[in-house]
């Protein structure tokens, strides 16, 4: 009943290629986080303003990003835009999709974080003659950063795992893409994907560890 014999050797031979793919995976996730944080900050500000257009845009982004499957978001960006004659690469579609998602989730985290910084901090800083901009820069955002630091780490791990969706729009050089490439050639599905899963796991754990060390160094108060 169980006559499958494992061929780990061929999987380990593919390890250098897979590590190359893992780097693409990490890079894509990191980029999607950088853009995601920047867009999320803009969205957070837009949702604070009185301008109904800006608020509506910010709220719509957050709402759509959080309430639709990220698979569909990437699919629509690649094939959907294709039907309008806009063709972007698999990698660009993946990056845009994950960034869209990150921005939505992070904007919601930032909003909660801002609420957690007491209003009186703003008053205290303004009473010392600081402008609103300087107050945000030097007093509010540094405190916000601590509050959203662990959610930010989670989001980064999530982004790494979600880049595996790139394979559905034909991405072939990230960790999942490389793994799938070997899989279709050898049909050693278990070995290759188990090895890939271990690599994903190690990336995720490394991110959490680095974040923990960074947090320990950054937030001494």
């Amino acid at each position: 009943m169980f006559d499958y014999s494992f061929h780990w050797r061929s999987a380990f031979k593919a390890l250098p290629d897979m590590l190359g793919g893992a780097w693409v995976t990490f890079e894509t996730a990191a980029l999607s986080m950088i853009f995601g944080v920047l867009i999320a900050l803009c969205l957070t500000l837009m949702r604070q303003t009185k301008n109904p257009l800006a608020r509506g845009f910010g709220n719509a982004w957050v709402s759509v990003a959080r309430n639709t499957p990220s698979l569909f978001q990437i699919y629509l960006l690649y094939f959907g835009l294709g039907s309008f004659g806009i063709h972007i690469s698999s990698w660009a579609a993946l990056l845009a999709g994950i960034t869209f998602n990150n921005a939505g989730y992070l904007a919601e985290n930032f909003r909660g974080g801002l609420k957690a910084v007491p209003e009186t901090q703003m008053r205290a800083a303004r009473s010392l003659g600081m402008s609103a901009f300087k107050t945000y820069q030097l007093v509010i955002i540094p405190q916000l950063l601590r509050i959203v630091f662990y959610p930010l780490t989670n989001q980064m791990v999530w982004a790494v795992l979600m880049t595996s969706l790139g394979v559905i729009v034909g991405l072939n050089n990230d960790l999942t893409g490389v793994t799938q490439g070997y899989n279709v050639k050898t049909f050693r599905t278990f070995e290759y994907f188990a090895l890939a899963a271990v690599l994903y796991y190690l990336i995720a754990k490394a991110i959490v560890l680095v974040a923990r060390l960074l947090g320990w160094r950054l937030f001494r108060y």
Partner: peptide, 20 residues
């Protein structure tokens, strides 16, 4: 106001230290 506030110090009931 930012300029004016430079010469008016205020101390609040809830001291409002910057915790970071």
């Amino acid at each position: 106001l930012n300029r004016l506030r430079q010469k008016i110090g205020i101390v609040f009931q809830q001291w409002n230290a910057f915790p970071h």
